[in-house]
Design a protein around this nucleic acid. Structure first.
Lengths: 191, 191
DNA sequence: GTTATTCTTGACACTATCGTCAAGATTGAC
DNA sequence: GTCAATCTTGACGATAGTGTCAAGAATAAC
């Protein structure tokens, strides 16, 4: 290696994630990324190819961290506690920052101008793995549900979390989201 | 009146609604609207001012029709039946067309590049009125819930419908959405 | 210290979109 | 048929974004 890269790639991706999280893939421009990272547009093109490539790296990092947090939150013997933790985590994740950043996965799923198969696939992967995690949690309950029921319910829970992300964008406060989350958990699992 | 308008305003708004529904406020361009309606860009600017004004008209029409459909679907004595009808309506609404158009309200709520207070307000209005409709339905059940419970649950139901809209965008089929809807209704109300 | 390689930089060409405007076309009212 | 108001049309300037490229800067290896 000669003529060495002037910036730390991990830093750039982490900063890019923040930009994409706030603006969305479509609305974040290369100029935004250049300004936020302090790396010139040309260098970014040279290093990564194009905006989508940067997004994919950032999203992968986000997804890994997100799924790990979800897994941790769900790691409780008591299903109700596990789900409460999980919802707390989800809601904090989307209401964090000022102004709040919302949920990147949901924003990306709704981003109109995305035809990229790679991006769609990532979104589906995150949701699928989340479903899996929750399904395992529900099925593993001592004297728990039948597997089919657990996974059907897991999908309902994932769907509800997506709904929370939309409500956050619509202007509902963290407190309101938490109340809905609690009501949901009581209604669905507590019963 | 002299120099009379060459197009039918209702037709234009209806066509514009279709364009916005498919592309979103941000991604639909005046050129798209001009091409779809057959009315030149300049004429649209002359008649409506700008894109947002057209969107607001189209969205109002959409919201009125949507809330009426919701009200009809919910108009059943039996709460469970009412909710089933409601979810059928919602899911058909978002999976209709090919390719499916998704949910306009949800898309608009997530649209990143929207700073317009007017637009945000419309989204909140639709969700608020929907909550109201569902709350009334739940509260009106013979021997029904306490009002506070009904409205808290109504918000959970609205949230879940938003989740369905996201899942549709993520690639879930009408059939899968209906299954989740049914599971949700059973879990939340059937219990 | 020289070299060869890689990165950085700023300018460039291209495309898309917005909103505006003057000139022309249209038509109801008289 | 003429007039006057309104609509339509196509062109314009401005802005913003994309991706590319040649020239220059930096540095690891020798």
């Amino acid at each position: 290696m000669v003529g060495v890269r002037q910036f730390d790639e991990d830093d750039v991706i982490a900063t890019a994630l923040d930009v994409f999280w706030r603006k969305g893939l479509h609305d974040a421009t290369m100029q935004d990324l250049a300004a936020a990272t302090g790396v010139q547009r040309g260098s970014l093109y040279n290093a990564y190819g194009d905006k989508e490539a940067i997004f994919l790296r950032a999203f992968d990092q986000y997804a890994a961290q997100f799924l790990e947090s979800a897994g941790n939150a769900l790691a409780h013997r008591d299903t109700t506690t596990a789900l409460r933790n999980f919802f707390d985590m989800i809601i904090v994740n989307m209401t964090d920052g000022s102004p709040a950043r919302g949920c990147l996965t949901t924003r990306t799923a709704l981003d109109a101008g995305i035809s990229s198969a790679a991006v769609r696939q990532r979104v589906q992967d995150v949701l699928g793995r989340l479903e899996q995690l929750i399904g395992e949690t529900l099925g593993a309950t001592p004297g728990g549900r039948r597997a089919a029921d657990a996974y059907r319910l897991a999908r309902v829970i994932v769907t509800f979390t997506r709904g929370l992300a939309v409500m956050e964008r619509a202007g509902y406060s963290r407190k309101q989201l938490k109340e809905s989350g609690a009501t949901f958990v009581d209604a669905v699992v507590g019963a």
